[in-house]
Computed example of a mutant assay.
Amino acid sequence: MAIQLSKSSKERREPSCRVMVVDDSAVARGIVTRTLEEEDGIKVVASVPNGLMALKAAGNHEIDVVVLDIEMPELDGLAALPRLLELKPDLKVIMVSSASQRDADISLKTMAMGAADYVAKPKAGLGGAESFRAELVSKVREHGTGAGKAAVRHPPSPRQNAASAREEEVARNPARPNRAPSKPDVIAIGSSTGGPQALAEVLRDLDPALTQPILVTQHMPATFTGFLAEHMTRYSGRSATEARDGEVLEPGRIYIAPGGKHMLVERRAAGGTIIRLDDGPPENSCKPAVDPMLRSLAKAFQDRLLVVILTGMGSDGLKGCEAVQKEGGRIFAQDRESSVVWGMPGAVAQAGICEEILPLRKIGPAIIRIAGGEGK
């Protein structure tokens, strides 16, 4: 079977993002290809039905992003992924899977193997799934033309230079707590694109003696968050679970916001703090979102809160961090170089409200330093 090369329906300038679509369904390939090529600056240069043909096409084309299905004949996505990355280490691979439990688990495994991101296929099919297509376009564009692109082919723009200068300024003059530092009673982490790998590294590095509960909001659909909790249990050696409404925060446990619900906390009059799951509208186009979690934590814990914003697309977490800062809480952000996408941490860093901007490998030790009782 010959490799199908797609052609744009209208003349465009040189694309800034070149994509290969890999899926055994001709219908799915057609929908994804049309969806992407409707966007200015994106061109699908190859469309193939399995991993073997993807490897051949990758050797014949300049490709920035691969949209890779999991279940395919001859060579599936799980087997093709490492071979594609071996062939082209800078390639950004976005896994596409069904929302079934099995594929959700496999998708998380592919993230640990080097996939850049994932998109869950809707159960009703791709044809009428506007949210699926919007998410796919956003992630392809971000990884192929934005912060996710490894190679720098043009000099930095004035805007990029300004952002870098702001990062350096904040690194030299970090925000300081507006009152005497307190040992945090709780740790909160927000993440999105690239988050599962970053979360695994941060949680793995934490001292087992830390007793604070850890609340995590990772942008992820339902089904996936349960498997994320299982993976984080294995990586961290701590009990990590999808949060349940009404459960009491317990020392040392990790609570993952379930897909499709915002995770909040509520102080009880009798003492203790409980989880509240909220079915309100998305914030920043996300559900769960980081902002509502941080607002509720800031209200409940005030200055006894430590927040970490990890790699992620967009600016979710910025408004929540502003509320945290007002209450005297402390904020860390992942640095640009170690982030898959420096959107969420970059927004917080450039707002000048984070205390430290840190490479991923230093975030775990920094949490230990603060939450372990040193305070500064």
Score class of each variant (00 low, 15 high):
E356R: 15
P15H: 05
K261P: 03
S338Q: 09
A240V: 04
S315Q: 15
A134Y: 00
A120F: 00
E322N: 10
I367H: 08
D245I: 04
Y255F: 14
E135F: 01
A323F: 07
K109F: 01
G320C: 09
N60K: 15
R244D: 08
T211D: 15
L78C: 05
M111Y: 02
G146K: 03
A347V: 05
G272V: 03
G375S: 07
R12S: 13
L87Q: 15
S339Q: 08
P184H: 04
V137I: 15
E86I: 00
G312N: 08
L264D: 04
R12Q: 15
I368H: 12
L358C: 06
D185S: 10
S97A: 07
G328E: 11
R276M: 04
R253P: 07
M113R: 07
P292L: 11
E356N: 13
G252W: 01
Q325I: 00
A349C: 14
S25M: 10
C286L: 10
A371E: 09
G329E: 11
A289S: 15
E247R: 09
S285M: 14
Q101R: 13
N161Y: 03
S339A: 12
D316P: 06
F224N: 02
I63R: 06
I63P: 01
K7V: 12
A165W: 07
C286N: 07
C17V: 14
Y235R: 12
A180Y: 04
R176L: 13
Q334L: 06
P158V: 03
V202Q: 01
E283P: 00
G373C: 11
V340Q: 13
L264H: 13
Q218N: 08
P213K: 10
M1H: 11
P288I: 02
I256H: 06
S47D: 14
V44I: 06
A99S: 13
L87N: 14
M263I: 02
L318G: 05
V27N: 11
P258L: 12
H154G: 00
K261H: 15
D205M: 09
